[in-house]
Amino acid sequence: MKTFAIVGLGMALAPHMASLADLKDRARLAHAVTRSPARRAAFEAAHGIPATGDLDMALADPAVDAVILLTPPDSHRDLGRRILAAGKHLLIEKPAGLVTDDTRFLADLAGSSGLLAAPVLQHRFRPAIRAVAADLASGAFGRLCGVHCLIPWWRPQSYYDAPGRGTFARDGGGVLLTQAVHTLDVLRALCGGARITAAQAVTSPLHRMEAEDLVCALATFGPGAAPGTIMATTACSPGMTETMTLILEWATIRIEGLRATVFHADGRVEDLGGQGAGGSGADPMAFDHASHRDLIAAFLDALEGRAPLAVDLSDLIATRELIDAMT
């Protein structure tokens, strides 16, 4: 049984609490930390677990093995440093800092301290994505020949009216770092890397915000430098499902949200499964928590010494470098 603390009781909390409930035979929550008295009261009423504003008290508890950090990006470097300095393993929400050097700092600190540090990149744990990754690793479909990625999401202006949201000072960026990072991380991993050759990032007339809400890019993918395109936005009302199309020698793979389909060159169509909403519209939390649960289960496997981390901060750094090249 591993003991956790959660720091940050905002929007990102719900799937983590649902996941810990599912994993109650392997994990327990000892501390919930937030500076907000209102959020502490709401958390205690909903979960029956005491909440505190004292992070140092939670970190001083020798029973705590790991901390799930769910605060805004501008706090990630400092709070992540404090958590690791206290000798606790770290599971941190993306983007793990305002700039990529913040993520590198935390990765280096964890490595030098002998601690695990992993990002919340839950899309990697979707069953359809795992199935596609296994098929690609087998080499059964031949070389990658072309790629198209479209993330036509929507956020209303009210979303960006929240203090600090969509600013560089609090979020570190806009659609790429806050929304598209999950899809781009999956795309980069499936293709074996990506390199941006040209890009344009703008703030559309649909939003009043500091950072970008629409980005288009040309890129090459994988060791064979297959050509492809990326478009990501939160200005596409009412919000549509993101898609990735991978054109290979002997098949085309289309990933649409949680679903993946293989169109074989011989005419066969193979459904790799997956269904459900993915948070593409006005409600950013409109998704099932199953991928979060599987991510935390994999983190527990690493904590228990059963397996290495399935996804670590080096993966997030590589995806952030891809994002940096588009802005």
Rank of each mutant, 00 (worst) to 15 (best):
I255E: 01
L116G: 01
R268E: 14
D324T: 07
L23V: 05
A162M: 10
H31F: 13
A201H: 08
V120H: 04
A118E: 01
D213E: 11
G173E: 00
V215A: 04
R293E: 15
F141A: 05
T234N: 15
D54A: 07
V181P: 00
L136V: 15
W154V: 02
M57K: 09
C216L: 13
F299G: 10
D288L: 10
S158G: 09
T197R: 15
R188I: 05
A63K: 11
P156F: 05
G111R: 13
L150A: 09
R165C: 08
M285Q: 15
L69V: 07
P127V: 10
F43S: 07
K94I: 02
L91Y: 08
T245L: 14
P73H: 03
A235L: 09
G192I: 11
L121D: 01
R268N: 09
R130P: 00
L13C: 12
M244L: 15
T252N: 14
A265T: 02
T241P: 00
A318E: 13
G139H: 12
M209E: 10
D324N: 15
I6M: 13
V67W: 01
D56R: 05
K88H: 05
P62H: 04
P308I: 11
L218V: 01
A110N: 11
S138G: 15
Y160S: 06
A201D: 13
S204V: 07
R208N: 11
L246I: 10
A110K: 09
V67Y: 04
A42I: 02
T243G: 09
T3R: 14
V99D: 07
A277W: 03
A137E: 15
M326L: 12
V67Q: 08
A180N: 04
V262H: 03
T252H: 06
M1V: 14
L246A: 10
L303S: 07
G305E: 08
S237H: 15
A260R: 00
L150Y: 03
L184E: 05
L136A: 08
E304I: 02
P119S: 05
L98G: 00
R77Q: 08
R155N: 07
A282C: 08
A310L: 05
D301F: 03
D65C: 06
A27W: 05
A211N: 02
L79F: 01
I247Q: 14
H289D: 14
A232K: 00
H289L: 00
E212C: 04
I317Q: 03
V269K: 12
A180I: 04
L9F: 02
M1I: 10
R126P: 00
T319S: 15
I68E: 00
L115N: 10
L91G: 03
H31P: 02
D54W: 02
D135W: 10
G111S: 06
D101M: 03
L246C: 12
V120I: 13
G279L: 11
T52N: 05
F168H: 12
G224T: 13
A198N: 14
L70F: 08
H207S: 15
A307N: 07
W250N: 15
V64F: 01
D213R: 12
L98H: 02
